[in-house]
């Protein structure tokens, strides 16, 4: 278990931890926009940059790296608030504010770094997407890959293939749930669900009649887990009832 110093605080972490884990363990806050525990780090937003020096480097030699995906090593020194780090984060937030001038999440972060208004040319046609890639990555993670990023550079956007309702989408809403700016629209009711232009019929609990899950999602999970479909069709309430019944039947042995 390597020990390293974050802003002067000594901290010991697992050897497969990242600098972000180490900083958090040391109680140091590092801002992130594209990081999500449980998903592989991506290093896209560049907000989590820190200054890092390896044990065998010269004392004053630091390199700027992203904390979210840089592995820890014994004797490392990490500084999260040097002038150049703050300045780099400021540039990143200033740029994001130009892209998404009306997005509260970005406005708040920018303000925290002293930026009230962007220094750059604001996006004439803004939306709330900050291109953090969380939606596409969670979709990949679930094993669906229904959406991806299209185009490159400034024109990059998140879209289903050919901007048509994605045939692979299972309507699980993970993309919409994970989105830090809530910019993926969807509709869901007791009967129907709609996201990315694709409509889904909800499977309902046979006993309670509650909408539980889309048919596509149940099938996807059943296939991947080997658990029978009926499990996914059962609502949480039904499951609890089943369990209560089981408990009632149990005989307590004295």
């Amino acid at each position: 278990m390597p020990t390293l110093k974050v802003n002067g605080r000594r901290v010991t972490v697992d050897s497969d931890a990242t600098l972000l884990d180490a900083a958090r363990a040391a109680g140091v806050e590092v801002p992130t926009l594209c990081q999500f525990d449980g998903l592989e780090p991506w290093g896209g937003c560049r907000l989590c940059v820190v200054d890092m020096s390896q044990a065998n480097w010269d004392d004053d030699w630091f390199k700027v790296v992203t904390a979210c995906n840089h592995p820890v090593d014994e004797g490392m020194t990490v500084i999260t608030d040097s002038d150049r780090i703050i300045e780099t984060r400021r540039v990143v937030l200033d740029l994001l504010l130009a892209r998404c001038p009306d997005t509260p999440l970005i406005q708040q972060w920018a303000l925290e770094y002293g930026i009230e208004q962007t220094s750059y040319t604001p996006n004439p046609d803004p939306d709330d997407c900050i291109l953090c890639g969380l939606c596409t990555r969670v979709c990949d993670h679930i094993g669906v890959s229904a959406i991806s990023s299209i185009n490159r550079g400034w024109g990059r956007e998140i879209a289903p293939p050919f901007n048509q309702p994605p045939p692979d989408c299972i309507g699980c809403l993970a993309c919409a749930e994970i989105c830090p700016t809530d910019c993926i629209p969807f509709e869901t009711s007791n009967v129907r669900r709609k996201i990315w232009g694709k409509e889904f019929e909800m499977l309902r609990d046979p006993k309670t009649g509650e909408a539980v899950i889309t048919k596509e999602q149940a099938e996807h999970f059943a296939e991947r887990s080997g658990v029978p479909m009926t499990y996914f069709e059962t609502s949480d309430r039904s499951k609890r009832r089943e369990m209560a019944k089981t408990f009632e039947k149990l005989q307590v042995v004295k």
């Binding site: 290093g43 896209g44 937003c45 560049r46 907000l47 780099t88 540039v91 990143v92 740029l95 994001l96 130009a98 892209r99 750059y120 040319t121 291109l131 890639g133 990023s149 185009n151 490159r152 550079g153 400034w154 024109g155 990059r156």
Partner: peptide, 21 residues
Amino acid sequence: LEEESCGKCTPCREGLKQMLH
């Protein structure tokens, strides 16, 4: 470079665009 930036990271994607402005 602005045309060829992949757009994955913020500084390159947004920075080149703003630099050109």
